[in-house]
C-alpha cells in the first residue's frame, strides 16, 4: 500500500543538550514534489535535516516522522540512506585516503544489497560513474581524489550532487547547497538536481536565497522560524521573502495563536 505522502512529519520536537530546537514541526511531502524551506539562521533547518537522516546530535522528544508510511525514527542512519534519503551536507566531510571510487562503490553496493540486488561489476560501476559525472558536469579529476580531501567549497557541493546522482535518492535534502557557489556552480548544482529527478523523486531544498529557486522551481515554500514552520505557500513566497526579508515573518509568527498557545504550555 502506497502512502499518500512520501514523508510526513507530525508535531516534531527535538532538543540538543536539553534545549528544544524543533518545537512542533509539521510537514507533508508528496511524491514528486519539491519543497523549499527558508528561514533565518539558527531557526533549526539543519537540525531538521539531522533528525531526518538519523544523526544523533538532536534527540527527538515528541512527534512522528513516517517515510512511505514506515516509522523513520526507528531506522538507523544507514537504513534511511538505503531507503533512499539523501542529504547534501551543508558542510561536506573530508575522508583522507579514501578514494571517491571506493567510497561510492561501497555506498552503491550497500544500497543494492539492501534491495536484494547483486553488486555492480567493476566495469558496470565505472560506466555508471562516467555517466553520472557527465550528467552533473563534475570534473573527472575530482572523482579520482580522496573523498572531499582538499576540495574547494564549490567542489565539495558539486561532489554532493554527484553522489546524489549516483545513489538516485527518493527524497533528496539539500542543506544550503547553494551557499558560497558562484553562478556557474549554482547552475551545475540546479541542473544536476533537475536531471536526476524522476516523477516520484521528492526534494527538500533548504536555502536562504531565491536564486536557487529560479532553477529548481518549488511546488511549496515554507518558512521556518524558531523550530517551526510558520508559513507555507507557493513559489511566490520565496520572492516575497527575497524582497521583504524575514522580519515581517517574525512579527507575524510572534503574534500568531500558535506561539501563544505553545508559550503558555
Amino acid at each position: 500500500m502506497k502512502d499518500n505522502f512520501l514523508l510526513q512529519i507530525k508535531e516534531l520536537k527535538a532538543s540538543i543538550d536539553n534545549k528544544e530546537i524543533l518545537k512542533g514541526l509539521n510537514l507533508e511531502v508528496g511524491y514528486g514534489e519539491i519543497h523549499a524551506i527558508m528561514g533565518p539562521n539558527g531557526s533549526g533547518k539543519s537540525t531538521l535535516a539531522n533528525v531526518l537522516t538519523g544523526r544523533d546530535i538532536a534527540t527527538v522528544t515528541h512527534g512522528s516522522v513516517t517515510f512511505e508510511g514506515h516509522n523513520l525514527l526507528e531506522m538507523s542512519p544507514e537504513e534511511r540512506a538505503r531507503e533512499g534519503i539523501f542529504l547534501s551536507f551543508q558542510y561536506p566531510i573530508e575522508i583522507p585516503g579514501v578514494s571517491m571510487v571506493n567510497f561510492m562503490k561501497t555506498a552503491v553496493n550497500e544500497q543494492r544489497k539492501y534491495h536484494g540486488l547483486e553488486p555492480l561489476s567493476a566495469s558496470d560501476f565505472l560506466k555508471l560513474m562516467r555517466e553520472k559525472k557527465e550528467l552533473v558536469e563534475i570534473d573527472s579529476a575530482l572523482t579520482n581524489r580522496s573523498v572531499n580531501e582538499g576540495f574547494s567549497g564549490g567542489e565539495k557541493k558539486k561532489n554532493e550532487i554527484f553522489q546524489m546522482a549516483m545513489l538516485e535518492p527518493r527524497l533528496a535534502l539539500l542543506d544550503e547547497t547553494d551557499s558560497g557557489l558562484d553562478i556557474d556552480a549554482l547552475r551545475i548544482v540546479a541542473n544536476g538536481v533537475n536531471k536526476i529527478r524522476r516523477p516520484d523523486t521528492s526534494v527538500i531544498v533548504i536555502t536562504h536565497y531565491q536564486r536557487l529557486l529560479d532553477h529548481i522551481i518549488p511546488d511549496f515554500v515554507h518558512v521556518m522560524y524558531d523550530g517551526r514552520i510558520v508559513k507555507s505557500a507557493g513559489p511566490e513566497l520565496a520572492l516575497e521573502l527575497e524582497e521583504r526579508g524575514y522580519d515581517w515573518i517574525r512579527k507575524e509568527a510572534d503574534v500568531s495563536e500558535e506561539s501563544w498557545t505553545t508559550d503558555q504550555k
Partner: peptide, 13 residues
Amino acid sequence: DQIFYCNQRGIST
C-alpha cells in the same frame, strides 16, 4: 562526522 557521512551514504559504521 566522518562516520555519519558514510552512514548517510548507506555505509554501516
